[in-house]
Design a protein around this nucleic acid. Structure first.
Lengths: 138, 138
DNA sequence: CTATTCGTAACAAATTGAGTTACGAAAGGA
DNA sequence: TCCTTTCGTAACTCAATTTGTTACGAATAG
């Protein structure tokens, strides 16, 4: 796979859980909806659980469910849960210390990117999981 | 390297060109500022040239220069030039057609992501290369 | 006690980005 | 004309990442 599918997959996972509000859903079931391996789903759900978005129960009859109402989970929270948050992607190479541009540009770029990322997250924050479910003909 | 450094590197490249408005700059020179290989820089500059942001000249005395004034180049244009624009990253796996969530969720997610990406680009569009240069102590 | 299910480690396969080498094409100067 | 410089681009290697897979221990219900 080329790019990071974690965010889109995580939204899909959450939607499946939101569609079964009364019962726990197994990773096998979610995996069959995504047509992937249960372990891939459990890894995603581990991130979502750490962020407090889902709860899990082990053992027979166990599985996953949303930890809050779908209306109180937004796409920004899901993105924050499953995306890297290591700041902007600079080359790991040390830039040339004798070049005045190279010496000073990183924080300038980082600030602009941080603002853009904040705008993206703000937009994702306007869409709740309940909004997503409403648009599905289910 | 872990994540995509193309955008941050491209801004750095453009800043170096903006710092030499009167002359062509060789890929060797830019590469030494970024502490990387000239071919890596030329690949970046090829994308920027295709977007009409820089111009190149071959041969002795040749090199690269900005194709417009730094005030008329913004970070959104640089990002658009060097980033993939294949839309949101879905898993290449076909999702389960018997699951109503899986059957219908992709366009809903895609629309939300498109709006978020537009917000990010709008924010990047507010920062011109000239703004970046002003913040550098050069 | 057994079956189920999560949690997680370990590993293979595929993909990607960066770096590198190489070489042809273009352009200027002697 | 010939040589040097420099871009344009293809081909390759290397390292890192993601996904998929197997495996197994821990927890839980019946």
């Amino acid at each position: 796979m080329s790019r990071n599918c974690r965010f889109t997959a995580a939204v899909h996972v959450c939607a499946v859980l939101a569609n079964h509000p009364e019962s726990d859903v197994t990773s096998d079931y979610v995996a069959s909806s995504l047509n992937t391996n249960p372990v891939v789903v459990r890894r995603l759900l581990a991130s979502l659980a750490q962020a407090g978005l889902v709860a899990s129960k082990r053992g027979s009859g166990g599985g996953y469910r949303l930890a809050k109402a779908a209306a109180r989970i937004d796409l920004a929270a899901i993105a924050a849960a499953v995306e890297d948050d290591d700041g902007p992607a600079f080359s790991p190479n040390p830039t040339n210390p004798t070049c005045p541009i190279a010496r000073n540009i990183k924080p300038v770029i980082a600030e602009a990117i941080a603002r853009a990322e904040a705008a993206r997250m703000s937009e994702l924050g306007k869409v709740s999981l309940a909004d997503v479910m409403e648009k599905l003909p289910v």
